[in-house]
């Protein structure tokens, strides 16, 4: 999996691409852990090019949501297919979108 991180002023853009593998994932999260952000920062994670199973992404998003939760907003971008699949795990997403 490739991870591209851009930080522009108060916005962090994270793009994940490829297949999720646990080994590379550790590297990814370490990258993310190093990013500085505050309550004004919005975070956008584009998973639409990820080929991992939807439920794995969902676990990842939960972890990321927790990590970035002090930010202003967290936006997760999914491909239609991921969303369709994700819908079958509605309970997971409901945890994320619950206000």
């Amino acid at each position: 999996m490739e991870v591209r991180i851009q930080k522009k002023k108060e916005k962090i853009s994270i793009e994940l691409e490829g297949r999720y593998l646990t080994d590379s994932y550790i590297t990814i999260v370490q990258h993310l852990a190093e990013i500085e952000f505050d309550s004004k920062t919005s975070v956008e994670i584009d998973c639409s090019k990820c080929t991992s199973e939807a439920y794995q992404l969902q676990f990842l998003m939960l972890v990321l949501a927790k990590h970035f939760s002090s930010g202003k907003t967290l936006k997760v971008i999914l491909s239609p297919n991921q969303k369709d699949k994700g819908l079958r795990f509605e309970p997971v997403w409901s945890q994320l979108v619950k206000e």
Binding site: L74, K75, I77, L78, P80, L96, E99
Partner: peptide, 15 residues
């Protein structure tokens, strides 16, 4: 749309 966006409120952690 080509991509779907889901906004996650930062309050997740505080949930």
């Amino acid at each position: 749309p080509a991509k779907t966006e889901i906004d996650v409120k930062p309050e997740v952690k505080s949930q």
